[in-house]
């Protein structure tokens, strides 16, 4: 196994270059993606369900809750978003539980590009990142120059991370190289004038890719194109992150690291609302890829209401009483 380098580090490009033969043409890329081992849906879902029965109690639960909080990309992606809403959410991200200063900060605040500057200002030097969706999120149905401008705009406004969507239409039509080239172009658009780059999360919208074989292929395609993170969903369609599709993506980053030495992060998003759900996902991480992915550098939750449930569970653990929604803040 080659030594590991992070996808967002300077050495990843050279490693990916070693895989250039499989992305040299549409035909080569298709052959490669279709040559990946198949996924048996029943078996995959059974494995995910079985890990879902792990019982995480007491000290392990306390650890998992704090870890989960620290992994949240606290998200607001509504047409009704305002600077006030984004500032309030940012404040909450920095200081999730005003009654308990030991509560960890979230990883990032995730907003639309036009809210990046507001979020950046509100977060200051708190260490909480600003993540911006881009590339005509959530549908991604815009011309490439528009998507690149959308991305560059977010980066220029101070986004630390960019969550792009792939062109599912192109993917489902079998035009893998188009999807690949587009991700590469967006990655370039993430570059800042000083040569550093916003981290790139690539959203597949698993619910629209529909099959597990497609999700595995999209994962490899995204990683080959230079994704720092692969992300399940926009949160805007019927099926978002599930234990099974997240498990599959964890297997993909594990296998990709074994093949290339490049470590890529995973972000399930959408539909994860309870502490119990979040802990199940952490169990998936723990037992599929292990410690090396158990930090917010490598695993994130795209969520909004999840945070309050985690906070209520956290209060329960520290006080012994069940908490209620009146004891956490609404933003």
């Amino acid at each position: 196994m080659p030594t590991t380098v992070p996808a967002h580090g300077p050495d990843a490009a050279a490693r990916l270059a070693s895989m250039a033969d499989v992305t040299a043409s549409d035909a080569a890329l298709r052959r490669f993606l279709h040559g990946l081992p198949g996924v048996d849906a029943v078996g995959l879902e059974a494995r995910a369900a079985s890990l879902g029965t792990r019982s995480i109690k007491t000290t392990a639960k306390a650890y998992a809750i704090d870890l989960a909080i620290s992994m949240i990309d606290l998200t607001t992606l509504e047409g009704a978003d305002t600077p006030g809403k984004v500032r309030a959410l940012s404040a909450k991200g920095v200081n999730p539980d005003p009654t308990d200063r030991t509560t960890p900060r979230v990883a990032a605040i995730c907003v639309y590009p036009d809210m990046v500057a507001t979020a950046k200002e509100a977060l200051g030097d708190s260490g909480v990142h600003v993540a911006s969706v881009a590339t005509a999120f959530p549908a991604g149905r815009a011309a490439l120059p528009v998507k690149l401008a959308d991305t560059a705009d977010a980066v220029a406004a101070g986004a630390d991370e960019v969550d792009m969507v792939i062109d599912r239409g192109a993917f489902l039509a079998g035009r893998y190289l188009k999807v690949f080239e587009e991700i590469k172009a967006v990655r370039e658009a993430c570059r800042r004038p000083d040569g550093s780059s916003a981290h790139l999360k690539v959203i597949f919208e698993n619910g629209e890719l529909a099959t597990y074989d497609n999700i595995r292929r999209a994962s490899w395609l995204g990683m080959l194109a230079g994704a720092d993170f692969i992300k399940t969903s926009t949160g805007k369609v019927a099926v978002n992150a599930t234990p099974a599709n997240t498990l599959l993506m964890l297997e993909a980053v594990r296998d990709f690291r074994a093949a290339t030495g490049v470590q890529v992060g995973v972000k399930p998003a959408g539909g994860i609302r309870t502490s119990k759900d979040a802990i199940k996902f952490l169990v998936l991480v723990n037992e599929t890829v292990g410690d090396e992915w158990l930090s917010n550098e490598w695993f994130r939750f795209g969520a909004s209401s999840l945070l309050n449930d985690l906070l209520m569970q956290r209060q329960k653990l520290s006080t012994g009483r069940y908490s209620g929604p009146d004891y956490v803040t609404v933003d």
Partner: peptide
């Protein structure tokens, strides 16, 4: 192994 079990950061408490 991908899983250094003893001393792992996320060690499951007895359940």
């Amino acid at each position: 192994a991908a899983q250094p079990k003893p001393g792992s950061a996320f060690a499951y408490a007895p359940a």
